[in-house]
Structure formats: C-alpha cells, structure tokens
Amino acid sequence: MGLFALEGVGVATERGQVLHDVTAEIPARGVTVLVGPSGAGKSTMLRLCNRLEVATTGRVLFHGEDVVTIDPLALRRRAGMVFQRPTLFGGTVRDNLALALPGADDATYAAALGRAELPSTFLDCPADEISGGEAQRVCVARTLVTDPEVLLMDEPTAALDERPRLALERLARHFADEGVPVVWVTHQLDQMRRLADHLLVVIAGRIRYAGEVGALDSHADPEVSAFVGGAR
C-alpha cells in the first residue's frame, strides 16, 4: 500500500480546472519528486495530501484511509509541510518551534534543530536575524518537532542560493534514508535528477509519467519529452 494514493482526483477553482482525473500513488519510502512546469498543478497535488486543498472529485488516501475522514489538524501533524519561502514568525527560534509543539522542553526543540543540522545555540536566536538557508532549516526543524510520518516539501529551495539549496537536498536525502519519506515539488530538472527515487511528471493538471528517473528520457510521451528536453 502506498503512503498517499490519489484516485480520480479533480480540483476546480474559480480560475478553472487545476487537476484532471489524477490517479497516482506516492510510495512510503524514499524521495518522491513531483516535477512539471510552473502552474502544472504540482503544489495543488501536494496540498491535497495535508488537506490545505480538497479534491472537487475523487479521493485522496493516506495509508489507505480517505483524508476527509481524518481530523485535519492531526493529519497536518502527521504529514508535515515546508513551503517555498521560509516563513518564520516573531520572537526567537525557540518561540517558532513552540508554535508547532507548545510547552515542550529545550531538549525536544534542540533535537529537532539537530535533525535539521542546526546547533542548539540557535534556540535563543531572534528569528528575523538568521540567513535564508538557516531560516528554511529552522522551518524544517519546526515541522520535525511533531515527529511527522512524511515531509511534504513545496519547492523549498526556490528562494535559496546554490549552497543552502544543495544542503537542503542533502538533508531531504538523509530523512528519506532514515525512514521518513519525502515528497518534493520542483520545476528544476537537475534537482529532480539529484533527488528522485520515484517520479511523477505533472503537465497541465495531468500525470504524464510515473516511475523511475532512469526511464524518463526514453519515455515516448511527446509532452514529457518536450518538457525534459526543453529544460535541459
């Protein structure tokens, strides 16, 4: 059984149909990359997994259970999400971690920082005085505080330079190897090739390829070939 399964999912908004009859499975291990051009519906697919979006048609399953039957607040703690831009709030790094898990002790917060490869001395740092790359890792640590079963990462390196970008990719690989699966959204093919164990190519709201990265280049779908070739 997959970690997430989308069964005939459609999403319509006032801007039109964002996803069309999507059926796909996200495995319970490794790094699954959702790749596709901007506006293809990748982020919408990811947001369906923690119910920041809901399907207009079809259903989304988490460990075989329809997400609409799961308490959304509990689901969001089990499926932690990191966004495009690091979003830290006022106060210290400790205050930020406490938003996810109020009242925990410093050891718990320091352990979460450690998993994001940040020292415990960061706890007292004012959140608005740290660099973009560090801020994004604090966001990862904040998500890890609740010990999620999966990490949903929505273009988390979009606002980062190359070094912090590669550091965050390494971190994602490390989590996957540790047994915390990662679902990573990107439109960058080089990043996809570095990270993906499993791949879903989303174009114009439809899944055009699902499988290994190695088989992508020989895939016959002209739209997939155009996307892969055009971005090279």
């Binding site: 969001r76 932690g80 996810a100 998500t143 609740t146």
Partner: peptide, 9 residues
C-alpha cells in the same frame, strides 16, 4: 497557511 500546516486550528 504555515500556521495551519503545523496543525494550528
């Protein structure tokens, strides 16, 4: 949405 994604009501 970052707050909601952390499980805040």
């Amino acid at each position: 949405e970052a707050r909601l994604a952390l499980g805040q009501p």
